[in-house]
């Protein structure tokens, strides 16, 4: 099936560059060299990245729309983003019970990596606008969700039970990893923690990694595990129906419809 959003050469380049920079923006606390600029300005680095990441996301989305995204994709994107935004309050933010990952994973799976990427970014942006939740965390949430959606679209071919299991496993990993990443982003803001779980700018990778893992265990595991479990449960229960609905929609929308014109035989 034709994917809903075509990824051209330049879009691919933009995704790659954004992902590389995004990975650095998330993981610099672990990897930054002791005498690097980021460590020297460890207080400001997260803010700099919070400005850089949205600009790069804008470049990727602009590349998608520049030729690869027609009215059908834009409309479907808007509607599914609305579904995600309407679902967000359902979890009530309690203990990471966010049902939205089901839509992101299944949407990316049914409609392709380009659409998945856009859906992740656009839906979190839209829901933040709606609730007045625009903040420095937003670009990172958007990037994380975009990766989740894109990854789902890149999973290997499968169908039936194996596909469902694969998606559930992916959903668990993705929802969990999203929590870890956001945690990593937030980590440099925490100060005053004991050395064993504190970020120490410029410390060796091993020390910071260990500290981060401990930090995660102490702080956010209680959110990340329920989120992953909920995602698995929802994918196993509702996955087939939702996937069918999305695929029906894609078929009905007929992405990349090829009109044929012939002269009348007269």
């Amino acid at each position: 099936m034709t994917p809903a959003v075509r990824i051209g050469k330049r879009s691919l380049l933009a995704i790659l560059a954004t992902s590389i920079i995004g990975i650095i923006a998330f993981s610099w606390p672990l990897f930054a060299a002791p005498d690097s600029a980021a460590v020297a300005h460890a207080n400001d680095a997260p803010w700099l990245f919070a400005l850089v990441v949205p600009l790069l996301l804008a470049v990727v989305l602009a590349q998608f729309t520049d030729g690869g995204m027609d009215a059908k994709a834009v409309a479907l994107l808007g509607v599914l983003a609305a579904v995600v935004a309407a679902m967000r309050p359902l979890g009530g933010g309690a203990a990471g019970l966010e049902p939205i990952w089901v839509i992101l994973v299944l949407g990316g799976r049914a409609l392709g990596p380009g659409f998945g990427f856009s859906l992740g970014a656009v839906s979190l942006f839209a829901s933040a606008l709606m609730t007045g939740g625009v903040g420095p965390w937003l670009p990172f949430q958007m990037l994380g969700a975009a990766w989740v959606g894109m990854g789902a679209g890149l999973l290997p071919r499968a169908s039936g039970k194996p596909e469902l299991l694969m998606l559930a496993a992916y959903g668990a990993v993705a929802a969990f990893a999203f929590g870890l990443l956001l945690n990593l982003w937030f980590w440099p803001f925490t100060a005053g923690l004991p050395a064993a779980i504190a970020f120490e700018p410029g410390a060796p990778l091993g020390q910071n990694l260990l500290a981060w893992i401990h930090f995660t265990i102490v702080t956010s595991l209680g959110y990340d595990i329920p989120r992953a479990v909920l995602t698995v449960v929802l994918i196993m229960l509702a996955g087939p129906t939702i996937l069918t609905a999305l695929r029906r929609a894609a078929r009905r929308a007929n992405f990349g419809a090829v009109p044929t014109f012939e002269a009348a035989a007269s």
Partner: peptide, 25 residues
């Protein structure tokens, strides 16, 4: 900005459609 017009449209669609979705539920 003009380069993000399409994405802007889809966000507008999302914003206007969400209350309708809640009514649908």
């Amino acid at each position: 900005p003009a380069a993000l017009y399409e994405v802007g449209v889809s966000v507008v669609v999302a914003l206007t459609f969400t209350p309708q979705l809640i009514a649908d539920v």
